[in-house]
Protein backbone atom coordinates (compact mmCIF):
# COMPACT_ATOMS: atom_id res chain seq x y z
CA UNK A 1 0.00 0.00 0.00
CA UNK A 2 2.80 2.31 1.02
CA UNK A 3 4.64 1.41 -2.07
CA UNK A 4 1.68 1.98 -4.36
CA UNK A 5 1.04 5.42 -2.81
CA UNK A 6 4.60 6.32 -3.70
CA UNK A 7 4.08 5.06 -7.25
CA UNK A 8 0.93 7.14 -7.62
CA UNK A 9 2.84 10.20 -6.43
CA UNK A 10 5.63 9.52 -8.89
CA UNK A 11 3.14 8.89 -11.68
CA UNK A 12 1.34 12.17 -10.92
CA UNK A 13 4.66 14.01 -10.87
CA UNK A 14 5.68 12.45 -14.18
CA UNK A 15 2.35 13.33 -15.83
CA UNK A 16 2.57 16.86 -14.45
CA UNK A 17 6.07 17.30 -15.76
CA UNK A 18 5.18 15.97 -19.19
CA UNK A 19 2.17 18.25 -19.56
CA UNK A 20 4.18 21.23 -18.36
CA UNK A 21 6.86 20.70 -20.96
CA UNK A 22 4.32 19.83 -23.66
CA UNK A 23 2.31 23.00 -23.05
CA UNK A 24 4.59 25.42 -24.84
CA UNK A 25 5.15 23.03 -27.71
CA UNK A 26 1.53 22.18 -28.42
CA UNK A 27 -0.41 25.16 -27.19
CA UNK A 28 1.28 28.43 -26.40
CA UNK A 29 4.01 28.28 -29.03
CA UNK A 30 1.75 27.65 -32.04
CA UNK A 31 -0.53 30.43 -30.74
CA UNK A 32 2.31 32.87 -30.16
CA UNK A 33 1.26 35.04 -33.09
CA UNK A 34 -2.40 35.19 -32.07
CA UNK A 35 -1.94 38.60 -30.48
CA UNK A 36 -0.32 39.95 -33.63
CA UNK A 37 -3.03 38.41 -35.79
CA UNK A 38 -5.71 40.03 -33.66
CA UNK A 39 -4.21 43.42 -34.45
CA UNK A 40 -4.67 42.88 -38.19
CA UNK A 41 -7.40 45.18 -39.49
CA UNK A 42 -10.71 43.44 -39.68
CA UNK A 43 -14.01 44.00 -41.37
CA UNK A 44 -15.30 43.60 -44.87
CA UNK A 45 -14.22 44.98 -48.15
CA UNK A 46 -16.84 47.48 -49.28
CA UNK A 47 -17.52 48.79 -52.75
CA UNK A 48 -17.16 52.51 -53.41
CA UNK A 49 -17.27 54.56 -56.60
CA UNK A 50 -13.47 54.77 -56.38
CA UNK A 51 -13.07 50.99 -56.28
CA UNK A 52 -13.17 48.38 -53.49
CA UNK A 53 -12.09 49.59 -50.06
CA UNK A 54 -10.38 46.90 -48.00
CA UNK A 55 -9.56 46.74 -44.26
CA UNK A 56 -5.91 47.38 -45.19
CA UNK A 57 -6.95 50.54 -47.07
CA UNK A 58 -8.92 51.80 -44.07
CA UNK A 59 -6.00 50.96 -41.80
CA UNK A 60 -3.70 53.19 -43.86
CA UNK A 61 -6.23 56.05 -43.80
CA UNK A 62 -6.49 55.83 -40.01
CA UNK A 63 -2.72 55.53 -39.56
CA UNK A 64 -2.03 58.61 -41.70
CA UNK A 65 -4.55 60.53 -39.57
CA UNK A 66 -3.00 59.24 -36.32
CA UNK A 67 0.47 60.23 -37.54
CA UNK A 68 -0.69 63.83 -37.88
CA UNK A 69 -2.35 63.78 -34.47
CA UNK A 70 0.85 63.09 -32.55
CA UNK A 71 3.54 64.36 -34.90
CA UNK A 72 1.98 67.81 -35.13
CA UNK A 73 2.29 68.36 -31.35
CA UNK A 74 5.74 66.70 -31.38
CA UNK A 75 6.93 69.05 -34.12
CA UNK A 76 5.53 72.07 -32.31
CA UNK A 77 7.16 71.06 -29.03
CA UNK A 78 10.56 70.68 -30.69
CA UNK A 79 10.31 74.22 -32.07
CA UNK A 80 9.75 75.42 -28.50
CA UNK A 81 12.28 73.23 -26.72
CA UNK A 82 15.16 72.55 -29.08
CA UNK A 83 17.90 74.96 -30.06
CA UNK A 84 19.36 72.53 -32.60
CA UNK A 85 19.09 73.88 -36.13
CA UNK A 86 18.67 70.45 -37.70
CA UNK A 87 16.02 69.37 -35.17
CA UNK A 88 14.08 72.57 -35.82
CA UNK A 89 14.40 72.00 -39.55
CA UNK A 90 13.04 68.45 -39.15
CA UNK A 91 10.22 69.79 -36.96
CA UNK A 92 9.38 72.28 -39.72
CA UNK A 93 9.11 69.45 -42.25
CA UNK A 94 6.92 67.43 -39.87
CA UNK A 95 4.52 70.32 -39.30
CA UNK A 96 4.22 71.19 -42.99
CA UNK A 97 4.09 67.58 -44.18
CA UNK A 98 1.50 66.37 -41.71
CA UNK A 99 -0.73 69.42 -42.10
CA UNK A 100 -0.79 68.62 -45.82
CA UNK A 101 -1.36 64.89 -45.36
CA UNK A 102 -4.00 65.49 -42.74
CA UNK A 103 -5.95 67.68 -45.13
CA UNK A 104 -5.75 64.98 -47.78
CA UNK A 105 -6.71 62.18 -45.45
CA UNK A 106 -9.73 64.08 -44.08
CA UNK A 107 -11.04 64.68 -47.60
CA UNK A 108 -10.53 61.05 -48.57
CA UNK A 109 -12.03 59.68 -45.37
CA UNK A 110 -15.11 61.87 -45.81
CA UNK A 111 -15.59 60.66 -49.37
CA UNK A 112 -15.13 57.04 -48.42
CA UNK A 113 -17.14 57.25 -45.20
CA UNK A 114 -14.25 56.17 -42.96
CA UNK A 115 -14.44 57.39 -39.37
CA UNK A 116 -11.23 59.07 -38.22
CA UNK A 117 -9.82 59.19 -34.68
CA UNK A 118 -9.36 62.63 -33.12
CA UNK A 119 -6.86 61.69 -30.42
CA UNK A 120 -3.44 60.04 -30.64
CA UNK A 121 -3.32 56.40 -29.50
CA UNK A 122 -2.13 55.52 -25.99
CA UNK A 123 1.20 54.43 -27.49
CA UNK A 124 1.64 57.76 -29.28
CA UNK A 125 0.62 59.64 -26.14
CA UNK A 126 3.35 57.67 -24.34
CA UNK A 127 5.91 58.85 -26.90
CA UNK A 128 4.82 62.46 -26.40
CA UNK A 129 5.16 61.94 -22.64
CA UNK A 130 8.68 60.54 -23.12
CA UNK A 131 9.63 63.66 -25.08
CA UNK A 132 8.10 65.93 -22.46
CA UNK A 133 9.97 64.10 -19.70
CA UNK A 134 13.40 64.51 -21.34
CA UNK A 135 15.53 66.59 -18.95
CA UNK A 136 18.42 68.09 -20.89
CA UNK A 137 18.27 69.47 -24.41
CA UNK A 138 20.70 66.80 -25.65
CA UNK A 139 18.46 64.12 -24.17
CA UNK A 140 15.44 65.82 -25.71
CA UNK A 141 16.90 65.92 -29.22
CA UNK A 142 17.89 62.26 -29.09
CA UNK A 143 14.56 61.06 -27.69
CA UNK A 144 12.62 63.21 -30.10
CA UNK A 145 14.48 62.18 -33.26
CA UNK A 146 14.55 58.46 -32.43
CA UNK A 147 10.90 58.09 -31.46
CA UNK A 148 9.84 59.88 -34.63
CA UNK A 149 12.29 58.06 -36.88
CA UNK A 150 11.17 54.68 -35.51
CA UNK A 151 7.49 55.47 -36.12
CA UNK A 152 8.12 56.71 -39.67
CA UNK A 153 10.29 53.69 -40.46
CA UNK A 154 7.57 51.28 -39.38
CA UNK A 155 4.85 52.81 -41.51
CA UNK A 156 7.06 53.24 -44.59
CA UNK A 157 6.99 49.63 -45.89
CA UNK A 158 3.30 49.40 -44.89
CA UNK A 159 2.50 52.36 -47.13
CA UNK A 160 4.35 50.62 -49.97
CA UNK A 161 2.32 47.44 -49.50
CA UNK A 162 -0.96 49.35 -49.70
CA UNK A 163 0.32 51.36 -52.67
CA UNK A 164 1.00 48.09 -54.47
CA UNK A 165 -2.20 46.21 -53.69
CA UNK A 166 -5.00 48.75 -53.28
CA UNK A 167 -7.78 48.78 -55.83
CA UNK A 168 -9.10 52.13 -54.62
CA UNK A 169 -7.99 55.16 -56.62
CA UNK A 170 -8.25 57.59 -53.68
CA UNK A 171 -6.21 55.34 -51.41
CA UNK A 172 -3.69 54.81 -54.21
CA UNK A 173 -3.04 58.56 -54.46
CA UNK A 174 -2.93 58.91 -50.66
CA UNK A 175 -0.33 56.14 -50.49
CA UNK A 176 1.81 57.85 -53.15
CA UNK A 177 1.60 61.16 -51.30
CA UNK A 178 2.33 59.53 -47.94
CA UNK A 179 5.35 57.76 -49.45
CA UNK A 180 6.87 61.10 -50.45
CA UNK A 181 6.13 62.80 -47.15
CA UNK A 182 7.33 59.91 -44.98
CA UNK A 183 10.56 59.43 -46.96
CA UNK A 184 11.18 63.18 -46.63
CA UNK A 185 10.59 63.01 -42.87
CA UNK A 186 12.82 59.97 -42.46
CA UNK A 187 15.54 61.82 -44.37
CA UNK A 188 15.33 65.06 -42.36
CA UNK A 189 15.11 63.15 -39.05
CA UNK A 190 18.31 61.30 -40.02
CA UNK A 191 19.79 64.69 -40.89
CA UNK A 192 19.68 65.62 -37.19
CA UNK A 193 22.54 63.18 -36.59
CA UNK A 194 20.69 61.85 -33.55
CA UNK A 195 19.31 58.62 -35.03
CA UNK A 196 20.53 55.34 -33.54
CA UNK A 197 20.59 53.13 -36.64
CA UNK A 198 21.63 49.99 -34.81
CA UNK A 199 18.54 50.02 -32.61
CA UNK A 200 16.34 50.69 -35.61
CA UNK A 201 17.98 47.82 -37.50
CA UNK A 202 17.50 45.42 -34.59
CA UNK A 203 13.85 46.39 -34.25
CA UNK A 204 13.20 46.13 -37.97
CA UNK A 205 13.92 42.41 -38.29
CA UNK A 206 11.39 39.90 -37.08
CA UNK A 207 10.47 36.26 -37.38
CA UNK A 208 13.16 34.14 -38.91
CA UNK A 209 15.05 36.84 -40.77
CA UNK A 210 17.29 34.45 -42.61
CA UNK A 211 21.01 34.94 -42.91
CA UNK A 212 20.85 33.86 -46.54
CA UNK A 213 21.15 36.20 -49.47
CA UNK A 214 23.98 37.11 -51.77
CA UNK A 215 27.44 36.27 -50.39
CA UNK A 216 29.28 38.97 -48.46
CA UNK A 217 32.13 40.73 -50.22
CA UNK A 218 35.57 39.21 -49.62
CA UNK A 219 38.07 41.73 -48.26
CA UNK A 220 40.81 42.52 -50.75
CA UNK A 221 38.99 40.81 -53.56
CA UNK A 222 37.60 43.08 -56.26
CA UNK A 223 34.52 41.62 -57.96
CA UNK A 224 34.53 41.61 -61.78
CA UNK A 225 33.41 44.92 -63.23
CA UNK A 226 29.76 44.98 -64.25
CA UNK A 227 29.08 46.57 -67.64
CA UNK A 228 26.38 49.24 -67.75
CA UNK A 229 22.89 47.97 -68.41
CA UNK A 230 21.98 50.09 -71.39
CA UNK A 231 19.49 49.96 -74.23
CA UNK A 232 21.08 48.08 -77.11
CA UNK A 233 19.54 50.47 -79.62
CA UNK A 234 19.43 54.19 -79.15
CA UNK A 235 15.79 54.93 -78.35
CA UNK A 236 14.70 58.56 -78.23
CA UNK A 237 13.78 59.29 -74.66
CA UNK A 238 12.80 62.56 -73.03
CA UNK A 239 11.94 61.90 -69.37
CA UNK A 240 14.25 62.72 -66.49
CA UNK A 241 15.40 60.30 -63.78
CA UNK A 242 13.48 60.44 -60.49
CA UNK A 243 16.25 60.71 -57.90
CA UNK A 244 17.29 64.30 -57.48
CA UNK A 245 19.69 65.73 -54.95
CA UNK A 246 20.64 63.31 -52.15
CA UNK A 247 18.81 64.33 -48.99
CA UNK A 248 15.99 66.03 -50.85
CA UNK A 249 12.72 64.24 -51.43
CA UNK A 250 10.32 66.01 -53.79
CA UNK A 251 7.12 66.58 -51.84
CA UNK A 252 5.71 69.47 -53.87
CA UNK A 253 2.27 68.62 -55.22
CA UNK A 254 -0.90 70.51 -56.01
CA UNK A 255 -3.28 71.14 -53.12
CA UNK A 256 -6.06 68.61 -52.80
CA UNK A 257 -9.46 69.62 -54.12
CA UNK A 258 -11.81 70.73 -51.36
CA UNK A 259 -15.04 68.98 -50.58
CA UNK A 260 -18.20 70.70 -51.67
CA UNK A 261 -21.40 70.76 -49.63
CA UNK A 262 -22.47 67.34 -50.71
CA UNK A 263 -19.72 65.44 -48.98
CA UNK A 264 -18.53 62.55 -50.98
CA UNK A 265 -18.62 64.26 -54.36
CA UNK A 266 -15.53 65.91 -55.75
CA UNK A 267 -16.15 69.43 -57.11
CA UNK A 268 -14.29 69.02 -60.34
CA UNK A 269 -13.74 66.15 -62.82
Amino acid sequence: MRRSKGSVLVAVAVVGTISAVAYPVFYSYPNRNAAAAAAVPTGDTVTTQWGPLTPADRDLIVRVRLAGLWEGPAGQQALERSGSKSVREAADHLLVGHADLDKRVRIIAAKLGVELPNQPTAEQQGWLDQMTAAKTEADYNKTWANLLRAAHGKIFPAIATVRNTTRNTLVRQLASDANQTVLDHITVLEGTGEVDFETIANNSVSGTASPTGPPPPVPGQVPPAAPAAEPSTNPRVSSVPSPTTPGLVPTGRPDPEELNNEQGEPIVQ
Binding site: G153, P157, I159, A160, T161, I200
Partner: peptide, 10 residues
Protein backbone atom coordinates in the same frame (compact mmCIF):
# COMPACT_ATOMS: atom_id res chain seq x y z
CA UNK B 1 8.41 48.40 -53.63
CA UNK B 2 7.70 47.29 -50.02
CA UNK B 3 11.05 45.43 -49.93
CA UNK B 4 12.82 48.71 -50.72
CA UNK B 5 10.90 50.32 -47.84
CA UNK B 6 12.11 47.62 -45.45
CA UNK B 7 15.73 48.10 -46.43
CA UNK B 8 15.39 51.90 -46.36
CA UNK B 9 14.17 51.61 -42.78
CA UNK B 10 16.51 48.93 -41.47
Amino acid sequence: FPAIGQVRNG
